[in-house]
Design a protein around this nucleic acid. Structure first.
Lengths: 326, 326
DNA sequence: TTGAAAGCGCTAACAT
DNA sequence: ATGTTAGCGCTTTCAA
């Protein structure tokens, strides 16, 4: 019950292994009659080319690793689906590696996969600087960075710029009369967290409303909002900005369960990061990210770079859109 | 700027490739002095063994594929995390393949990965019968089936039995005086969907309350509840059973947004499939699945089978627990 | 149109 | 303790 190899097929069909390879890969002209015979032998014997041997020989793995901070976050789930769809169109498989916003896990994952396991990386990094990857990610391996700016990163990068939309959102709250506007951030080391916070701080300062005591440092994942909301309420905030989709939903839920109706008793400015159902969208002011497009662009870029590694590096910014509560 | 190979290291250290291999894999006794020299050369040259060549030679990929119906579902996200943790403890990587509850995607994914890409499969199948995998998944490749019973499946299987807990839940509703109890199912072809529905039907029949018009066929994923809830309300249901976590949350949200308070205006029996935050748990009667344990057991079994493929096949059932609303 | 054969980088059996 | 070398299954160059 041994695995059938290309040699078995060649023998069975009475041809050389080269011919089997030509037929199997459709890589060279083979006469119809021979083709037929070979295909029949392949079928009869149940031959499946050994992917590893093939990769070994050609150096192509037809695999891309996607380093994801939190697969349970709908934002990243959407990204994954989109990237996978794009890559699959050219026969690439996706390895998903979940780092849970842990630097060590990210470094280990990249280190392992960079030993010839994959042809390229798509990375939503939880690191602080590209230097942390210097000796781990060879510059020769195509890498596309997504969602988060990694300082000093020499690779293709696709992010969504939320600065303007966040400014607009905060201005909107102020215009509606809010003065004490709280803020719950994501993980402090991440570019998106900083960008959004900076926008908030800038606008608040412009209006002389800035107060550091209204800012709480979250972790971008769930289970961190509950500890901050009560104290912000106590500080008499009439509006709260929450720095990503997961935490915004959590806040929405917690407020409702305390009998506080967002949109009526308090104003929320949250993020909408995907087309997936998200609770209470209509009760929030929203900053909407073009998540599917982000994933699609990164996936397409990966394919381009795999096809031609020498193309110039690209940095692309999409724009988020502010959408006030109706 | 070529990749450095084991030969380069051997030359640099003045030893044979075998010795480098022994050191690199810690697979044979090598004198301390030689070891030191080799390690130094490895470091100096930045040598990383080529994973593909190694896999090709040894036949071990140190990779397991996890076929998942819906990565955006917190239940599966939890399973993934758990399985990944277990496998990583023995140096195995996890490839996640998202089938989106699509039979064709599942078959394609398994077909591709079974060509020597991975050492084993963990499968939460969206198929109806193992025969659909017959010519695709060689019996020689270790496979662990999880969450869903695949009829005629010859492999290790780990599922959560919800029959008893569902019976108990429905009985609880009846005891509380409910007579018109609606039901929204998951994807009809899936074992978990059928098991839960059967429990409901059985108990409803026992009490002479069975009414087929109170049953709606969902799809196990999101976005399907909204169309069913209104008609069930119209049918004057005072309680509704909803066949998984995703749909239960969706129902909870939709009801609240129509001004109907679950637990007060209507009774819900839903599922809790993970430790992740799930909205409105305290307003529902719940059937709680030991999801983490399920993932852990499946992962551990995978490791056992990889270590010793001949161990007898195991079918294991965990039990869900009914937890009434307090 | 087909075939012979080199060789990808590594492991491990065997020889020294 | 270390080295020599066959060979994993395949692709692809070159020859016929």
């Amino acid at each position: 019950m041994k695995k059938v190899s290309i040699i078995d097929v060649a023998k069975h069909a009475g041809v050389s292994v080269a011919t089997v390879s030509y037929v199997s890969n459709n890589t060279k002209k083979v006469s119809p009659e021979t083709t037929r015979r070979v295909k029949e032998s392949i079928k009869t014997l149940g031959y499946k080319p050994n992917t590893t041997a093939r990769s070994f020989k050609t150096g192509k793995k037809h695999m891309v690793a996607f380093i994801v901070p939190d697969i349970a976050n709908a934002f990243f789930a959407t990204l994954i689906e989109e990237v996978e769809t794009v890559l699959a169109s050219k026969g690439y498989k996706l390895i998903i590696q979940n780092t849970k916003e842990t630097k060590l896990r990210e470094i280990e994952n990249i280190n392992v996969a960079s030993n010839g396991l994959v042809d390229g990386f798509i990375i939503a990094s939880t690191l602080e600087d590209y230097s942390e990857l210097n000796n781990i990610l060879p510059p020769s391996i195509p890498s596309v960075f997504i969602d988060r700016l990694l300082p000093n990163c020499p690779g293709d990068t696709f992010v969504v710029k939320c600065y303007d939309a966040t400014c607009e959102g905060v201005r909107h709250l102020i215009r509606k009369g809010h003065r004490k506007i709280g803020y719950i951030t994501g993980l402090a080391r991440i570019s998106t967290t900083r960008e959004r916070l900076l926008a908030y701080e800038t606008i608040m300062r412009e209006h002389g409303l800035y107060d550091q005591n209204l800012i709480r440092i979250g972790n971008s994942m769930s289970h961190c909002v509950s500890q901050y909301l009560p104290s912000l309420m106590e500080s008499k905030c009439t509006a709260i900005v929450i720095s990503n989709n997961v935490m915004a939903t959590e806040a929405m839920i917690q407020l409702l369960e305390s009998g506080i109706q967002p949109g009526r008793d308090i104003e929320l400015l949250g993020f909408k990061d995907s087309d997936q159902p998200q609770y209470g969208l209509q009760h929030m002011n929203l900053i909407c990210q073009p998540t599917s497009e982000l994933g699609r662009l990164a996936g397409e870029r990966m394919l381009e770079r795999l096809a031609k590694p020498s193309i110039p590096v690209l940095h692309e910014e999409l724009n988020a859109v502010f959408s006030p509560r109706r």
